[in-house]
Write a protein that binds this DNA or RNA. Structure first.
Length: 553
RNA sequence: UGCCUGAUAGUAUAAGGGUAGUACGACAGAUUUUGGUUCUGUUUGUCUUGGUUCGAAUCCAGGUCAGGCAACCA
């Protein structure tokens, strides 16, 4: 197993732990706070945690870190559960930090009894002030000297709702002079008279992250508790709690979170985009959320593959969004049904064709021999893409131009004979002739053309709406760029074409099918679809070497 | 200014004292009834200065740069 691919540092730790007999099996957890939707950065963590358990035959819990009732909601719980499942993972147990509030409370009393915690009546400002600075030790105040009995009584009174929010906290007694600021008598419990999404009004004191997370890990016998780099300084406190409480020794390991170009990854910023209307919601197809990407047409396979490729390490990183796009193209190329859709129609008349319909066959997917075929009506009056014709073509323009020949995909080779214009000089129609013995699959014409165009029969075309997306920001790293990240929003990140025209087969395709609109990109049906006019989101463009070539000029 | 992390091609990620490799990108070519796909080739890298060693990306010391830490957020 370890021969095929090199191990990341966490896999190395696990293999060592297993080899040394420190553990006989492993348990991991994915611990989201239900205060927002999951994004691609969470996907990295999900794939890591669940992937590790799968690889080493262990289990993964889904645990909601719901210790702050004022920001957390059931809506988020539902979306998180849904997203993890959609990504293809199944948790062994669904747990909530709030499941452990009673145990956590007992642990707190234990610390008080041991003289390891005390109730402090200081205000948040006073506590901050007494904390010192990175270069200056902090000072304990007079409340630190209270007796065990007094602390116990005060803490029980806190629990019983005798004090208002912010009036008192429970603090660990560790070291006010520690070079690690986290250890300067950190707050363990605070008073919040707030309704909790699961425990209701049972509690008015809630544990802080540091007093809930590690203990929850321990209660669940999590062997490897994997979190991101910013929790490194918390590890000392994580271990302190476990040691003082004498409970199962879970261990914390940190890896670098995912950052990606042309987007933002913090829940706070994503929430702002939603609340201030820069996007239509958490699941806007331009959002880096799992739900947004799902709606856009990303597949779970491609996201998992992406997470595999980016690797896991401890250095900060900024992943090129191009890698994500590569991953989704790679998968969609294998599975997407090919269909022809014209975005900006230009009418052409095949003057050499008789009236009537010739039904042609087109493979559903040239990459998949078992994908079958669909029928395509070919008639005298067709629509092609406006950009596939140029009256005065540049060099290496392998498309249609006066006197030039191209193949119509799945049909015949045609030549442009005449350009028809209106009074203003706009091109309204092309007159073309076809080469009768050049039909796809039975071409005996001997003519070689460089270009192949997609097209639809004018009378059979069905109207659809197509939504084209671009990156949400125009700066590589908007979160760290000059000024506010909102200044870097891409103003045209969404383009809606409400009059695209599709070949008729599209009307009968399943709603959840993945499509490649030939030469135009990968598309996926949107939930906004009404029966009269289906809506399709562009998941990603095709690689376009011609556009690159043309841009060089 | 204290402590904690980290530094390998453009971007990521391997090599664990013995030939710096892989993926994406870029570039060039071949194939192609999608300017798609596929295939081939090319290109670019060990932060710095010393030390240990026959030999250092790897071990040691100093430096530089980047990130994190002073929420009753997680």
């Amino acid at each position: 197993m370890s021969e095929e691919k090199s191990l990341n540092f966490i896999e190395e730790i696990i293999e060592r732990d297993l080899a040394e007999g420190k553990h006989t099996s492993i348990t991991t957890r994915f611990p989201p706070e239900p205060n927002g939707y999951l994004h691609i950065g969470h996907a990295k963590s999900i794939c890591l945690n669940f992937g590790l358990a799968i690889k080493y035959g262990g289990e993964t819990n889904l645990r909601f870190d719901d210790t702050n009732p004022v920001t957390e909601e059931t809506e988020y719980v539902e979306s998180i559960r849904n997203d993890v499942k959609w990504l293809g993972f199944q948790w062994a147990r669904e747990r909530y930090a709030s499941d452990y509030f009673d145990t956590l409370y007992t642990y707190a009393e234990q610390l008080i009894q041991q003289g390891d915690a005390y109730v402090d009546d200081s205000s948040p400002e006073e506590i901050a002030e007494q904390k010192g600075t990175p270069t200056q030790a902090g000072q304990r105040n007079r409340f630190a000297d209270r007796s065990v009995e007094e602390n116990l009584q005060l803490f029980r009174d806190m629990r019983d709702g005798k004090y208002p929010d912010g009036s008192r906290v429970l603090r660990a007694r560790i070291d006010m002079a520690s070079p690690n600021m986290i250890l300067r008598d950190p707050v363990l419990y605070r008073i919040k008279h707030a309704h909790h999404h699961r425990t209701g009004d049972k509690w008015c004191i809630y544990p802080m992250y540091d007093f809930a997370h590690g203990q929850s890990d321990s209660i669940e016998h999590i062997t490897h508790s994997i979190c991101t780099l910013e929790f490194i300084p918390h590890r000392d406190l994580y271990n302190w709690c476990i040691e003082k409480l004498g409970i199962f020794p879970s261990r914390q390991y940190e890896f670098a979170r995912l950052n990606m170009t042309y987007t933002v990854m913090s829940k706070r910023k994503l929430l702002q985009l939603v609340q201030e209307g820069f996007v239509t919601g958490w699941d806007d197809p331009r959002m880096p959320t799992i739900s947004g990407m799902r709606r856009r047409g990303y597949t779970p396979e491609s996201i998992r593959n992406f997470c595999e490729r980016i690797g896991v390490a401890r250095r900060e990183n900024l992943i090129d969004v191009g890698l994500l796009e590569f991953c989704v193209r790679e998968h969609l190329n294998q599975v997407a049904l090919r269909r022809m859709v014209v975005f900006h129609p230009l009418r052409i008349v095949i003057t050499t064709m008789q009236e009537g319909i010739e039904w042609l066959e087109g493979e559903n997917n040239p990459e998949d021999a078992n994908s079958g075929t669909r029928s395509i009506p070919f008639t005298r009056e067709l629509l092609i893409e406006q950009e596939d014709f140029m009256e005065v073509p540049p060099k290496k323009f392998f498309r249609l131009a006066p006197g030039q020949m191209v193949r119509l995909k799945h049909a015949y080779i045609i030549r442009c004979d005449e350009v028809i214009k209106d009074d203003q000089g706009n091109i309204t129609e092309l007159r073309c002739s076809h080469i009768p013995n050049s039909k796809s699959g039975e071409d005996t014409s001997g003519i070689n053309v460089k270009g192949t165009l997609h097209w639809v029969s004018q009378t059979h075309a069905i109207p659809i709406e197509v939504r084209l997306y671009d990156r949400l920001f125009r700066t590589e790293d908007p979160a760290n760029a000059e000024g506010n990240f909102l200044d870097h929003i891409h103003p045209d990140s969404q383009q809606i074409l409400s009059n695209a025209l599709a070949e008729p087969a599209l009307a009968n395709d399943p709603a959840d099918a993945r499509f490649q609109f030939i030469r135009m990109g990968y598309f996926y049906g949107d939930c906004d679809t009404k029966t009269d006019k289906p809506v399709f989101n562009r998941t990603v463009t095709l690689k376009d070497t011609w556009a690159k070539e043309a841009a060089k000029k």
